[in-house]
Design a protein around this nucleic acid. Structure first.
Lengths: 173, 173
DNA sequence: AGAATTTGCTTCGAATTCGAAGCATGATCT
DNA sequence: AGATCATGCTTCGAATTCGAAGCAAATTCT
């Protein structure tokens, strides 16, 4: 499971493949465990927790597009989850005062309370699974690397295959 | 996006939260881009490619459980995907000579060819998105860290989530 | 040996996800 | 101003996913 035997072709380092697979599998396993924990503890799916946490970080209110952009999610999926969360009383949907067509998702007090209730145990699980075998230096390096990778991916222009996409300039107005 | 304003509680470093979020978001974005590329290039979903690649790494044959264990996937989902892949002629299902109840998934020549066809472009996308902003030292550090994290997660026993795994609970439901 | 427990996989039903199409609002052009 | 295009969200249908239940083979216990 450590060294692939196929021929990846010229100029491609198998070390990168191994790193990528390790990253993907670890991230998948981590997500799985986190999902289990969140659902068992406070009855939220990982994506729901992520939505609420992103809202909390942003100060409580975001438009659907900003939110979907932040959680790397499809618009329709976000609509579905927003409906669930609204029905659960954790968020409210207000029309934006600026753009009538935009919908602002706002965190309710209960929603914020839920996030704060979930956060310690959530982080504890992540700590145990991800950060336990890592040193301080590892943590710093990983944080630095992943932040850089994330920013790089955010800066990636949308693929040309998309029929209707946002403007190439990802600059907020 | 750097420092959440909520109170995570005592003993929990916000740096870890930031690292975890960066990791999750980057992994999610990477997975999304990879999914797009794989589907557009060779008509495989990410999970299908992962199954085929895992099979190739293992020498061509694995049981369903070993495979599901390797790709962190549900058994039923793997059954579904195995059906699709078998119908596509990329794998075959043979009963195990050792255990009659076990099903061995075997990679066909076409399946192996598909993996090898997909691998270069796949790695190129990963390279561009993930490894482009990283130095050699970053790559080595990331590979080391993620491999350690993955092994640690693999070693994690299922908490109490397992319904009826090994121990016959004296409390029937 | 025979019965009970365990293990491995598949089927089933419900929930979730996504892209495309549809609808409404804002911006731009003439 | 009116028309046209662009943007934001939602609905819709199909595909995928998961856990629980079900079934067959193997191991263990008596």
């Amino acid at each position: 499971m450590t060294e692939p035997d196929h021929d990846p072709g010229p100029g491609l380092a198998p070390e990168q493949v191994a790193t990528y697979f390790a990253l993907t599998e670890a991230a998948g396993a981590l997500q799985h465990h986190v999902e289990q924990h969140l659902r068992a503890e406070i009855g939220l799916s990982a994506i729901q927790f992520r939505i609420l946490a992103t809202l909390a970080e942003a100060g409580g209110r975001l438009t659907m597009t900003e939110l979907a952009d932040g959680v790397v999610y499809s618009r329709s999926g976000l609509t579905y989850q927003a409906g669930l969360l609204e029905k659960a009383g954790l968020v409210t949907r207000c029309p934006s005062p600026d753009d009538e067509r935009s919908t602002l998702l706002a965190l309710t007090d209960e929603g914020l309370a839920r996030v704060e209730q979930a956060m310690p145990g959530h982080v504890a699980v992540v700590k145990r699974l991800l950060f336990d075998p890592l040193s301080e230096a590892d943590l710093a390096a990983l944080g630095d690397i992943m932040a850089r990778a994330r920013d790089h991916m955010r800066a990636q222009p949308p693929r040309s295959a998309a029929p209707r996409k946002r403007r190439p300039a990802s600059e907020p107005e």
